[in-house]
C-alpha cells in the first residue's frame, strides 16, 4: 500500500525555487533515505509534507488522501525536526516534553516504555534545556513515537552528535522499521549510513535526481559519482 504519493511538487520561495517538479511514492514499511547537499530542499520537502508550508504546487497524498483536504493524516505521523527549537530555560522535564506529544491521556504507560526503549528513562526527571545534543535527539524521537505513528519523518538528525550516540540512534531506527513496521522517511548527508540502513533512496537536489531501491543506487558507481559531483558543484556554488 502506498503511504505517501507526491506528484509534481514545486516549491518557489521569493528568491529560489527550492523544489522543482518532484514526484515519488513511499510504500508501507519502506525505509527511505533522502540524500542531498545543503540547500537541496530536504527540509522544504518535509515542510510541505507536514502542511507547515501550504504554498506549494502539485499534490501530496498521505494514505491515498490529498493533504490539502484533511489534516487527519498528521495523527499517524511522528516528526523529528532538524533543530528542535525551544526556550533554553523552559521549565519542563524530559517526561513533560514527551508527554506533550501524547494525544490520549490513557496511554500513560506508553511513556515509560518508550523512554526505556530509547535509553533515556534515567533522564526523565531532568530539565530539557540541560541535555546534550544526542540525549535531546532521543527525547524528540520519543515524543514523535508516543502516539504509535505509522510514519516517522526525521530531518537530518545526527549533526553534532558523537559517534556512539549516532550508532545507538541508527540501531533504534532499524528496530523501529523492522520490528515495529514503522515506515521511515529520513533525510541525511551520510551516504554510508543511508547505504547501511535504508532500503530506498531519493537523491534530491532541487529536482529528484534518483529514486528507487537503495542497492540499485549504491551498486551503480556512475550514479554515485554523478551524485557526488552534483553535490560538490552545489557546494562550491554556495561558498
Amino acid at each position: 500500500m502506498s503511504i505517501v504519493e507526491i506528484t509534481n511538487l514545486t516549491v518557489q520561495y521569493p528568491d529560489v525555487k527550492a523544489l522543482d517538479d518532484v514526484s515519488f511514492t513511499v510504500n508501507q514499511g519502506d525505509f527511505l533515505g533522502i540524500i542531498g547537499p545543503n540547500g537541496a530542499g530536504k527540509s522544504t520537502l518535509f515542510d510541505a509534507m507536514l502542511s507547515l508550508n501550504t504554498k506549494y504546487k502539485g499534490t501530496i497524498k498521505f494514505f491515498g488522501e490529498d493533504i490539502r483536504k484533511s489534516k487527519n493524516y498528521l495523527k499517524e505521523i511522528g516528526y523529528v525536526p532538524q533543530k528542535p527549537i525551544f526556550e533554553k530555560n523552559f521549565p519542563a522535564t524530559v517526561n513533560d516534553v514527551v508527554r506533550m506529544g501524547l494525544r490520549n491521556e490513557s496511554d500513560e504507560n506508553k511513556i515509560d516504555e518508550i523512554l526505556q526503549q530509547l535509553w533515556i528513562h534515567e533522564l526523565s526527571n531532568r530539565r530539557i534545556g540541560e541535555l546534550s545534543g544526542g540525549q535531546l535527539q532521543r527525547v524528540f524521537i520519543a515524543k514523535a513515537l508516543v502516539n504509535n505513528p505509522k510514519v516517522l519523518i526525521l530531518d537530518e538528525p545526527v549533526t553534532g552528535i558523537d559517534q556512539q550516540s549516532i550508532e545507538l540512534f541508527y540501531s533504534i531506527l532499524r528496530e523501529l522499521n523492522s520490528k515495529q513496521k514503522i515506515t521511515i522517511i529520513w533525510s541525511s548527508h551520510d551516504l554510508d549510513a543511508v547505504n547501511k540502513l535504508a532500503n530506498h533512496v531519493a537523491c534530491l537536489n532541487r529536482t529528484l535526481f534518483f529514486h528507487g531501491i537503495s542497492e540499485k543506487f549504491f551498486s551503480d558507481d556512475e550514479l554515485v559519482k554523478q551524485y557526488s559531483e552534483a553535490s560538490m558543484q552545489e557546494h562550491m556554488h554556495h561558498h
Binding site: S51, L74, Y79, F86, A92, R99, M100
Partner: peptide
C-alpha cells in the same frame, strides 16, 4: 493544558501534532 503547553513550547511541532 496539553495544547497550551505544547504550543508554548514549540509552535511548529505542536502544529504537526495536530
Amino acid at each position: 493544558y496539553r495544547q497550551i503547553l505544547y504550543s508554548t513550547f514549540n509552535e511548529e511541532q505542536a502544529k504537526v501534532s495536530g
